[in-house]
Design a protein around this nucleic acid. Structure first.
Lengths: 189, 189
DNA sequence: CTACCATTAGTATCAGGTATTAATATTAGA
DNA sequence: TCTAATATTAATACCTGATACTAATGGTAG
């Protein structure tokens, strides 16, 4: 791991990458890695406009706080604005930067899917539900600036099986539709 | 916002909730909220076993770091372990706590879907691809302890349309299959 | 009236910095 | 070769948001 004699420019490039990969590195650790003094690391950070450790951590924490809400541990992706248990429901999802492909700004499919799936689950009046089969069609691309309005409707129920249709509209145009078969798990298993 | 005279127990309950809702509150801000000294807040935190601000922020940051990697801005969900561009690919996903339903420990559908979708996209030898239609079957529930092995195969190509089958196995048993139609966006649009 | 607890005050110490000034290397150019 | 510019290191004062500890005060219940 000998990393002596790196010229300034190369060191700064490396520094950027290291911190991108691991924002939790202190100046001291960095000075060890590059075999320069802490002061040099701080000059480098100053020149590159990289904030101090605590700021970096805070940024990661704050930045991720929202995202996690969107698709993480939450049971619902999108905002549930209307629900009639066992019958229907509506949810709205406003895409954020991290949901789209960088180059095209098209919303990645699994966010659209996640909104629909979680709405389908929310609509079912049962403690736990699970997707059996989903039949999906994406009709048009959805962009960062669009707003996804998903409507779910329970079309049939047979025993612990529920058939739910979810249609997602963008600008009043249908952009996605999916048929979900949900299985209530209250009794079995 | 007068909040004087709260007895100790009530204050500590409130304190817990406040910090749960907003882990970014300093002791000073809390001492303002409850109209007690900073020392009292610190005694409370000590008794309740709540770590200091910086630790809390770090926890939020670290906790979410992994999750974001899993389904956030990354282009690939799961670990790509083999790929033959334009033909086939294999990816492995090890579920984490935040991917499952709390009560049943069953992996939420959209993670399974996301792994399959992103693998399908990765396999296509084109700069940008987009899902047209996905036909999906979930065969058995997948649990937190399972490991998802997804295999993608390009079965047909017609113009800028690619037909990709993705089969996900758990313990050598097929648990999910999906048919994706991808559209290369290099020329059109 | 006293024993106990909740609360507050004060001080020393810490990590991981900022900001500034100054002293040395090192290297490139004339 | 000497000089000027650039890079690096050192030293110091200060900041925030704490920990850890000791000690003083205030109320209240028995």
């Amino acid at each position: 791991m000998a990393r002596l004699n790196l010229p300034k420019k190369a060191r700064q490039r490396e520094l950027m990458e290291r911190l991108k990969a691991d924002p939790f590195l202190t100046d001291e650790e960095l000075s060890d890695i590059f075999h320069v003094s802490i002061q040099t690391i701080r000059l480098d950070r100053l020149e590159l406009g990289i904030p101090e450790l605590r700021e970096r951590i805070k940024n990661v924490a704050e930045g991720n706080y929202e995202k996690i809400r969107a698709i993480g541990g939450q049971e619902i992706v999108g905002e549930l604005i209307e629900i009639e248990l066992g019958k229907s429901g509506i949810s709205i999802l406003t895409p954020t930067e991290d949901m789209v492909f960088e180059k095209t700004k098209i919303v990645r499919g699994h966010y659209i899917y996640a909104q629909a799936e979680s709405l389908a689950i929310a609509v079912i009046d049962a403690k736990v539900a699970l997707i059996g089969v989903a039949n999906i069609k994406y009709k048009t691309p959805i962009y960062l600036t669009d707003k996804l309005v998903a409507k779910a409707e329970v079309v049939r129920q047979r025993g612990n099986k529920y058939f739910v249709w979810v249609k997602t509209k963008v600008n009043h145009q249908e952009a996605f539709r999916g048929k979900f078969i949900l299985v209530s798990m209250d009794d079995e298993q």
